Simulated assay, not measured.
Amino acid sequence: MSKVYLKPRKGLRVRRPDGRLLPEAGGHVQMSSYWRRRLRDGDVEKAAPPKAQPKIAVQKEEGDK
């Protein structure tokens, strides 16, 4: 089975098989018959994962500990 990034359709709250909610922004899930049914029923949609935010290095000024 493969992993895909899915997100709930606008206005819907979709539970994962373990009972937790799929975040509004979506999440990676292991494709299974459960997720195929959610796709077929229109509860979720395939989406591109959000791009990772680059980490900003914080420079310490002299005197900071």
Rank of each mutant, 00 (worst) to 15 (best):
V14D: 05
R15I: 05
R15P: 00
R15K: 15
R16V: 02
P17Q: 12
P17F: 01
D18H: 13
D18S: 13
D18W: 09
D18F: 07
G19Q: 08
G19Y: 06
R20H: 10
R20S: 14
L21P: 00
L21Q: 08
L22E: 02
P23V: 06
E24G: 05
E24C: 00
A25W: 03
A25P: 00
G26C: 06
G26A: 05
G27N: 06
G27R: 01
H28S: 13
V29D: 05
Q30V: 14
Q30S: 15
Q30D: 15
Q30I: 12
M31S: 12
S33T: 14
S33G: 14
S33V: 14
Y34V: 08
Y34L: 10
W35T: 10
W35H: 11
W35C: 11
R37N: 03
R38M: 15
R38Y: 01
R38Q: 15
L39H: 06
L39R: 09
L39G: 06
R40W: 03
R40H: 10
D41M: 04
G42R: 05
G42K: 05
G42E: 03
G42F: 04
D43E: 13
V44T: 06
V44Q: 02
E45I: 09
E45L: 07
K46S: 14
A47V: 02
P49G: 08
